[in-house]
C-alpha cells in the first residue's frame, strides 16, 4: 500500500457514496445511467469472487464488500425504488456491444486460462469502459447536475491514481501487470474530455453543459 493507491481507493469510495447520497437526498436518479451501474455491478461481482477463496487483509475484504453492496443498493434505487425518475429514454447505449466483445477478449488475452483468472480479466476490461453509457447519456442530454459531475470526477480520478501507484510499484518493487495498466490507461483516457470540462466549468461554479 502506498499513498497513491490509498488516495485512489478513497476517491473510488467517495464517488460511489456521492452517487448514493445524490439519489437518496433528491429521491431521484435523473441523469444517472442505470446501464453503467449494472456494468459496475458486474465488474465487482466478477472481480471479487476471491472473497470466498483467499483472505488478504481486513481492509481488502471490507472495501470489496462495501463496493459490492453499495453498487447493488444503487442498482436497486435506480431500477426499483426510484424507477419513476429513471431517464431510460436517454440511457440507450448498447451495453451488450461492450460486454460480449470484452468477454471474448478476456478469454483470449489473460494471464492464465482458469475460470477465476478469466473472470478477473473480464472485470478489468469491463471496468475500463463501464462509464461509457453514462458519458453517452450526458452527451445526449447535453447536461449533468453538478453533483453528478463530482461523482464522475472522483470516479475518473481513482484509476488515474492507480496508474501512478503502478508506476511507483514498478520502481519500488519491479512489479507491473500489463492487463491492469493498459485497461487503466484506457479507462482514464475516456474521462479526459470530462476532466477538461469539469476543471473549466464546474470548479468555476457553472453548470456543466456539453457542446452539441
Amino acid at each position: 500500500m502506498n499513498i497513491f493507491r490509498l488516495a485512489g481507493d478513497i476517491s473510488h469510495l467517495l464517488a460511489i457514496f456521492i452517487l448514493l447520497i445524490k439519489i437518496w437526498r433528491s429521491r431521484s436518479c435523473a441523469g444517472i445511467s442505470g446501464k453503467s451501474q449494472v456494468l459496475f455491478g458486474m465488474v465487482f461481482l466478477t472481480r471479487y469472487l476471491d472473497l470466498f477463496t483467499s483472505f488478504i487483509s481486513v481492509y481488502n475484504t471490507v472495501m470489496k464488500v462495501i463496493f459490492i453492496l453499495a453498487t447493488l443498493v444503487t442498482i436497486y434505487l435506480v431500477f426499483f425504488k426510484f424507477r419513476a425518475t429513471y431517464d431510460s429514454n436517454n440511457d440507450t447505449f448498447r451495453a451488450e456491444l461492450l460486454v460480449i466483445p470484452i468477454a471474448g477478449l478476456a478469454v483470449l488475452v489473460n494471464h492464465e486460462f482458469s475460470l477465476f483468472e478469466i473472470l478477473w480479466t473480464f472485470s478489468i476490461y469491463l471496468e475500463s469502459v463501464s462509464i461509457m453509457p453514462q458519458l453517452y447519456m450526458i452527451s445526449k442530454t447535453g447536461e449533468a447536475e453538478t453533483i453528478t459531475s463530482h461523482y464522475l470526477f472522483a470516479l475518473g480520478l481513482y484509476r488515474g491514481l492507480y496508474i501512478v501507484n503502478w508506476v511507483w510499484r514498478y520502481y519500488t518493487e519491479q512489479f507491473y501487470d500489463w492487463i491492469a495498466i493498459v485497461a487503466g490507461v484506457v479507462q482514464t483516457l475516456l474521462y479526459c474530455d470530462f476532466f477538461y470540462l469539469y476543471i473549466t466549468k464546474v470548479i468555476k461554479g457553472k453548470e456543466m453543459s456539453l457542446p452539441a
Binding site: 500500500m1 493507491r5 481507493d9 473510488h12 476471491d50 483467499s54 488478504i56 487483509s57 481488502n60 472495501m63 470489496k64 463496493f67 494471464h111 492464465e112 483468472e117 478477473w120 492507480y162 518493487e173 512489479f175 501487470d177 491492469a180
Partner: peptide, 10 residues
C-alpha cells in the same frame, strides 16, 4: 503467477 502480487489491489 504474475497476478499474486496484484491481489491486494481493488
Amino acid at each position: 503467477r504474475i497476478r499474486t502480487q496484484l491481489k491486494d489491489e481493488l
